[in-house]
Design a protein around this nucleic acid. Sequence first.
RNA 1: GGAGGUGUCGCAUAGCGGUCAAUUGCGCUGGUCUUGAAAACCAGAGCCUCACGGCUUCACAGGUUCGAAUCCUGUCACCUCCGCCA
Length: 417
Amino acid sequence: MLDINFIRQHAQEVKEACINKQLDSSIVDQLLVVDEERRKLQLTVDDWRKQSNENAGLIKQELAQGKQVSQELVNRGKSIKDELKKIEPELAANEARFTELMLAIPNVPTADTPIGSDESFNQVLREEGKIPQFNFPVLDHQTLMEKLDWLDTKRAVKIAGFRAFFLKNEALLLERALLNFALDSMREQGFTLLSVPTLVKAEAMLGTGYFPWGQDDHYYTQDKQILAGTAEVALTAYHQNELLREKDLPIKLCGISPCYRREIGAHGKDTRGIIRVHQFNKVEQVVLTIADEDETRRWHELMLSFAEELLKQLGLPYRVMAMCTGDLGAGQRKKYDIETWFPSQNTYRETHSASYFNDFQSRRLNIRYQAKDGSIKYVYTLNNTVVASPRLLAAIIENYQKKDATIEIPQVLKKYF
RNA sequence: GGAGGUGUCGCAUAGCGGUCAAUUGCGCUGGUCUUGAAAACCAGAGCCUCACGGCUUCACAGGUUCGAAUCCUGUCACCUCCGCCA
């Protein structure tokens, strides 16, 4: 959520943000109309309330003087109440609409975000690591894993449907090693480790900015809870409705959780292998900083570097992408994706996503802090992947395959076996 | 699932129909004082407004009343005991 004052003063800029993010820009004008109406109604209601308060004060005076309460004042109070009963629901309805529109206004992308409608506008910032050369025909991770009895998708699909899978034997050990490696690395960076709830309230989805836009991308329970697509939801909402202290910032959280995604817009994509699945495990990093964009940008780079360092230690080639406006989430100001090399596809595939929001999420979640000068501000939030499995597991398997279709274990993971 | 209790401004507490923008302690910010700090004292900490001023707030949503933190109803959360399950 943006500050309404900012929207009023930068309406054009916000509209452009809508357009560049492939969203409806007419809601900005709708919001401004509702906002104006809201302030008018508020003034009227305030005035009636003032009269009501004054009237009650007069009755109080009479009582204090030991007089009888005059019927005139009581009647006047009643008629004021009637007026309020008429106009207050109007204000409430207007406010509901106002909130709804406010929650639908996206964040404005940074000046250094490439403008574009789809992934073809994303920019390659750099490529890191050495792409492995194989002197034998390269196999994809599904073939390799099935040969080793590491993966069973046939039975999984029978039981759980399309995009389901069983990891078996050493594949499971390798996944466990990878996740433990990720958690240990973040702990070394001073992050607080958490296992997080993945069954969350709509409030948390709205608060992190996944809703209202991404409602179709998520699963719901019969108790109206949502299966979160990432631990970011619980981690970012962890301090919801709290007033923090500047000395406690930055807050560095690292969570592990299963993640659920409907992949509703990805029919027919990545049907082979376990790159795109409905349920996977992920270690995620979230940081809350002071309300300063330079500071948040510094953390953005830092969090990116934490993920890069992991990939370097794992010996995986990757590239860093600057995501264009069309690929930004509604709440995001700037986003980097890391794409890791997949030999069987002869290309890089997304394995990490690092974004920052300024106070977009914290306004929705009401996470504030008292600054050193005593003022109250909203924190700035950021997040990035640490490791997502099985996608990164598949990358390891493909990059570390040998001629006999066995897999070498990355040096850094050996101690976790 | 059954019975009872609790939910007040960052934290903790007082208040139980008008004297409550709300008590007190701690913490925080600014000021006075001080070489500096501490202590002490003063001021401040929601929204609208340039300001004057107004409105709001006592878990949330309704209701009763001229008037509600205070009474009533519902919801949510937490605590205690019993039951059930891991």
